[in-house]
Amino acid sequence: MNATEPIVHIEELTTHYGSRRILNNVSLSVQPRETIVLLGSSGTGKSTLLRHILALEKPTAGHIYIKGMDVCHSTDEELNQLRRRMGVLFQSGALFGSMNLADNVAVPLRELTKLDEPTIQVLVRMKLGLVGLGGFEDLMPSQLSGGMRKRAGLARALALDPEILLFDEPSAGLDPITAAGIDDLILKLKETFPMTIVVVTHELVSAFLIADRIAVMFAGEVVALGTPEEIQRSDHPRVQQFLKRVPEEPERDHEAYLRSLTSS
């Protein structure tokens, strides 16, 4: 792969949940070592797009190429090989509730590598130290705050030194100070490791702080794509609405409203 070839390449992706269209003809390329933020309000399809990149869902049409491999048409074995090069931080942290932090971080190391136990222990402490959770190895996920759970989830995502790191709403449900801490952590990782980072968020401050490029999503489409400065200057009405935090105008069709009340 040469330097200019995208590491993630999404081509005309369309997907439906039942009869409802969630993503509509989305195309997007992510360059190696780039941090891209998928920005948009709730229900615009950004988390769905992330789930497609992870091959957790199959699209109705279109392709997603990761490191040149079409993840929509791969065998489980090929996907598993690829997933070992990817780390994911889920919205809730998705820690295994029955294991303590050390065991959570050790899962990928124990299951997917042939490292001996003392090495795994050292690596686990390193990863937990990296996210600021050194010394918390023996705690269970239920004993942690929301922010700590996300940090621990991040430590597990980093366990195998991934090439691509994906975040689903990293600051959702956190207070501003804790959220800023997570942003700082993402910036630190970006500077330290040669990773491609994809972040799904609706937090403006966070997006403009960490992104190299931002893709603004609305109604299942990417409506604007560019550097944070370009997005600031964009005159797309939806982008401006989002940046200026203008609420959606309710539809004023009185006839339809009355019909919706009286129909059974």
Binding site: R51, L54, L56, L79, N80, Q81, L82, R83, R84, M86, V88, F90, Q91, S92, A94, L95, F96, G97, S98, V107, P108, E111, L112, G153, R156
Partner: peptide, 25 residues
């Protein structure tokens, strides 16, 4: 109850994205 809670908490997704087989695990 255990597997259902794991699914609700995205733990099954996490397992899958780690490249681990949920049946084996």
């Amino acid at each position: 109850a255990e597997l259902g809670t794991m699914k609700v908490n995205e733990e099954l997704d996490a397992l899958e994205t780690m490249g681990l087989n949920k049946i084996k695990f």
